[in-house]
Amino acid sequence: MQQLAFPRYEFRFKNTKNKPGVFDVVRKKFVVLTPEEWVRQHCVRYLNEALHYPLSLINVEKQLEVSGLKKRYDVVVFTPEGKIRILVECKAPSVAITQETFDQIARYNLSLQADLLMVTNGLAHYYCQLDYEHGRYNFLAELPPYA
């Protein structure tokens, strides 16, 4: 898989039925290694190892309902109180980050109400802090570490 704009991490790999797999430390199982999954796994490791968010507060690929439609978010980081701190949207490295990507995460966030958003294709990362009081978001240079 290609090198991404994240620190280098050690991953466990396994082939199952001629499909490459990578061990997901959150789901505690091997998952099919697609380009988007490669980005997702780097993102999880970055949140945990670089920013020190506990694995127990990180959730991966869960279903949510948006305007009556079933969707899946990529990564969510909770606060210890159960509020959503960070919502992450991951794309494959070959997928450009566009306004459509931001619209997608904004739609998901209507029901989730995260404090922070991260959009990444593994090569470019964008971080936003939500300002619900004024109905806008502010771009950040980086995500804050776990406090």
Rank of each mutant, 00 (worst) to 15 (best):
L116D: 06
N109Q: 03
I84T: 09
V60G: 03
Y126K: 15
E142V: 07
L140T: 10
V95G: 01
R72Q: 00
D103N: 11
K29Y: 02
Q63Y: 08
E49P: 05
V22Q: 11
E133A: 15
P54F: 04
Y53H: 07
G122P: 05
R40G: 00
R72K: 08
E49L: 11
Y53F: 15
V95I: 15
F30Q: 07
Q113C: 08
P54C: 04
E89F: 04
N59T: 13
E10K: 13
P80G: 09
Q113S: 09
D115H: 12
M1L: 15
K83P: 06
S94V: 12
W38L: 11
Q63F: 09
T79L: 12
F11A: 01
K71P: 03
P145Y: 03
A141N: 12
A124I: 11
A50M: 12
E49I: 08
G135M: 15
L57R: 01
S111T: 15
S94R: 11
Q99W: 08
C43R: 03
Q41H: 01
Q3N: 10
R40D: 03
Q99C: 01
Q113H: 10
I86C: 08
A147V: 06
W38G: 05
N121W: 01
N138A: 07
K17N: 13
T34V: 13
F6R: 00
N18W: 07
P80H: 12
N18H: 13
A106P: 00
P144Y: 06
E65L: 11
E133Q: 15
E65V: 15
L140P: 10
L140C: 11
C43D: 03
D115G: 12
Y137C: 09
R107F: 03
D103T: 08
Q2R: 09
S67M: 13
G135I: 15
E100F: 10
S94F: 11
R85G: 01
F30R: 04
L47F: 13
N59S: 14
D103A: 11
M118W: 11
E142D: 15
L55Q: 07
V88Q: 07
A106R: 02
H125M: 13
L33A: 07
A50L: 11
V88I: 14
N59D: 14
A92H: 08
H42Y: 02
L130D: 08
S56M: 03
D103K: 10
F23H: 10
H52T: 07
R107W: 02
Q104R: 02
L110W: 04
F11L: 05
Y146Q: 02
E100N: 14
I105W: 00
R40E: 02
L47S: 05
I58S: 00
L55S: 04
P54T: 05
P93Y: 04
T101C: 04
N15Y: 14
L117C: 13
Q129M: 12
H42D: 03
C90I: 07
F102V: 06
L47Q: 02
S111N: 09
E37F: 10
R8I: 14
